[in-house]
Design a protein around this nucleic acid. Structure first.
Lengths: 142, 142
DNA sequence: CTGGATCCCTAACGATACTG
DNA sequence: CAGTATCGTTAGGGATCCAG
């Protein structure tokens, strides 16, 4: 039975297309960072926590669980005390490395350009952007 | 002056690195879709609204404003009645097209793989994922 | 027509404390 | 060590009405 609501032709513009939710896996604040961190190999929970500056245990757990559920990471629990849990990318997760790297490259390369654009925008009139139209991320950096 | 807190070497793992917030421009639910929509040319607000299924006027406005501020889109207001406002990608925004396309490709190609991973995960024991560990997006698709 | 302003509810998230 | 549980705050975001 492959007769669900899914089209043969995925269409990112349709709200009910699976590709939408698939794309949004990486539209999370942390997923790309986890991908980067695990890119070079297996890491334990605490190692990830240290590597990814600013993430809380809650968000790390949450992100890892979601990624595991979506088949991006593998979670291996070693039944010892104290517990050892290792995370690594699955092949599916590794397939994501390159695309996400391109985003990183873009970010690195255009970092100053973006910064300049912001300053320019903020200086020009632009009736003081009301808080509602700023994302948390943007406010953080003020 | 280039002597702000920014390193010569951007480091995505640092919370205070500009590249972090730059990367997160596209970590928004809607930004990638706006990029896709504007990829082929200029569109008006209402056209974007129609093209991007499921977006609200508020989120579209918000997303466009953020993208404008960050130099990704250009907003042109034609002083006519009724008003005409056109949006298009700046060169900076166009530079984002390719990376984001790779994500789209990844999503399209691995769509079923992800779906299968989810089903497999959900069937196996896995003490019923508590709501807290699911993102809104994930809940939506249940 | 465009899109700003409000209202309001919910989900996201950090911080902290706690357990197998 | 690797999380889970809980609490409190705040941002996200839909719906709606309004103005230029």
């Amino acid at each position: 039975m492959v007769t669900n609501k899914q089209q043969q032709q995925p269409d990112i513009f349709r709200a009910d297309c699976l590709s939408r939710s698939t794309l949004q896996l990486i539209a999370s604040e942390w997923t790309p960072l986890v991908v980067f961190a695990l890119e070079e190999g297996t890491l334990r929970f605490s190692q990830l926590l240290k590597r990814i500056d600013g993430i809380s245990t809650k968000m790390l757990t949450q992100t890892l669980r979601a990624m595991e559920r979506n088949g991006l990471v593998q979670r291996v629990v070693h039944p010892v005390v104290p517990p050892v849990v290792e995370y690594s990318l699955t092949p599916l997760g590794q397939a994501l490395v390159e695309p996400v790297h391109m985003l990183q490259s873009w970010a690195y390369e255009h970092l100053e350009e973006v910064a300049r654009a912001r300053m320019a925008y903020d200086q020009v009139d632009h009736p003081p952007i009301q808080e509602e139209t700023m994302t948390r991320v943007q406010q953080r950096e003020q």
